[in-house]
Design a protein around this nucleic acid. Structure first.
Lengths: 134, 134
DNA sequence: AGGTCTGTAACTTTTGATGTTGCGAAACAT
DNA sequence: ATGTTTCGCAACATCAAAAGTTACAGACCT
């Protein structure tokens, strides 16, 4: 796969699961479909489970399924569950020194945070149901 | 330094140069101040020069200075010059296959792009002049 | 009991960014 | 003209985060 693709893997996978909500999907099956590794899948889906979006079951007929209906899962839920901070993390070292750049830093950070907030808001307007096949 | 800190290094540096617009600033001096390496500084500032924000001069009293007045340089100019795409680059591999996730992919990408557009718009409202000391 | 899953903990590999060294080219001072 | 300063650039070395891998314990079903 590639780097920083957790979000895409998550979307990809949830899209599929939402289309067949009634059966369990194993990590092996998903990994196969996504061209990656079962463990990687479990890592990513694990976060979604922690966020209450998915349910996993062990054992024979185990696997993964949605924790709620596709119409109740927004893209913002998915994005947030992965805490991908689009906002470039401020490199700490820069906080020190001159008041000037401290101001600059604060200003830019707040703009970035606001951009992220508006992004999440937008993602919240769309649910998985909108991508289900008819 | 740290990772993905080009934006911060650029802001930091331009902030300083904007406060002393009349003299040349050498990469060694900047690197020293930013706790990094002259070559790294030149790499980042080189992009800003390509974008027409800075001018560099070789030789004895050489170094870097702003190409225009602080009030004519917006944070968006800086951001754009570095083409930091905050939008996570879509991992290509996913474009294939099922129409469902292709739709999902397109939708999410467009939301991300819009978020970035609005971010740049916001950054465009602020100029370097606003961070100059009085 | 035996087979099928997830859950996790290591560890290795890969990738992108940063840091480093070295040297050529340009500008200037003497 | 010669030497010094400084950028420009290329070729590495180093580092950190992400992804991939292996291995095995725990849970569940038949």
């Amino acid at each position: 796969m590639k780097q920083n693709s957790r979000l895409w893997l998550a979307l990809h996978t949830l899209g599929h699961i939402a289309n067949e909500p009634d059966r369990m999907h194993t990590s092996a099956e998903i990994a196969d479909h996504a061209g990656t590794n079962p463990v990687v899948v479990r890592r990513v889906l694990g976060r979604l489970r922690e966020a209450g979006l998915l349910v996993s079951e062990k054992g024979h007929a185990g696997g993964w399924r949605l924790a709620s209906a596709p119409k109740d899962i927004t893209l913002a839920d998915i994005y947030s569950a992965l805490d991908e901070n689009i906002v470039a993390p401020p490199p700490a070292d820069y906080a020190r020194s001159c008041a000037v750049e401290s101001e600059l830093h604060k200003h830019v950070t707040s703009v970035l945070l606001e951009a992220e907030r508006s992004l999440v808001e937008r993602l919240g307007e769309t649910t998985l149901a909108q991508f289900q096949e008819v």
